[in-house]
Amino acid sequence: MYDPRLAWMLVAPVLLLLIFFLLLPIAVMLVYTFFTFVTAGVESATVTLANWHEFLTDGYYHGFLLKTLRVGGMTAIICGILGYFPAYFIWATTFKHKWLLLLLLIVPFWISFTIRTFSWIHILGEQGLINVTLLKLGLIQEPLQMLYTEGAVIMGLLHFLLPYMILNVYVSLESIDRTLISAARSMGCTSAQAFREVTLPLSLPGLAAGLMLCFVLAAGSYVTPQLLGSGRDALFGNLIYDTIMGQLNWPMGATLSIVLFMVLGCFAAVYTRYMSMSQIVKGLGG
């Protein structure tokens, strides 16, 4: 017999975790947005709308917010294009030790994210691998400016996010009943048609989930633009960092944090509604 108390008891630990480690900190941040900044590192509890007024009326913040969404979107789309094929290969291969291929996807996570990002400096820099090779081959006369550009930032984000995309798509592909593809082939489909009509549509939930995950992580990133970009290539996360850690202005920093949280939250809500939540969950969970 169904006992609602048992259900609540089972769900209580997770609820408490969510309340204390997610909702409560966000609520504290929200309260901070109404505090008054006095001087670096000092604020008072005098209630003010000055921080929200500054955000809403200052185009500087709007420009960076739009740029962050653009870079996040571009990164997610490129991740989707680049990530689908490795995922499909891992799924389709008849290689006996498929686990080894999946392990290779996880190997980069064994190394510090900061060091992985730093490695791009030795690849894209003026004295980096690409420039030195091109110069020695005589293909260029002057080193190419690749580092400290938006392209370098997107490259670093791709390096960081591609495994997430591949794993999402792979999980989605794994859930496809392979007899459907056989059926399509037996009914006259070519391999390409079977892929287009059966495999691709059925793997879209994983792709959609991967796109959302990559977009949210890219839009919220801070370290990659800090290390691989110039000041102009900063994202909204860098503005938050500067405000909290540089200006020591916590009320404004909290305001910017809540803005980013709301924008990404709204995006995720709208996205899941149009993509159908059940498909996303299916993609994430296989």
Partner: peptide, 12 residues
């Protein structure tokens, strides 16, 4: 306070 804020903007 004012200079730090302005510098953060110029640097970006």
């Amino acid at each position: 306070d004012a200079w730090q804020k302005q510098w953060d903007r110029i640097s970006k």
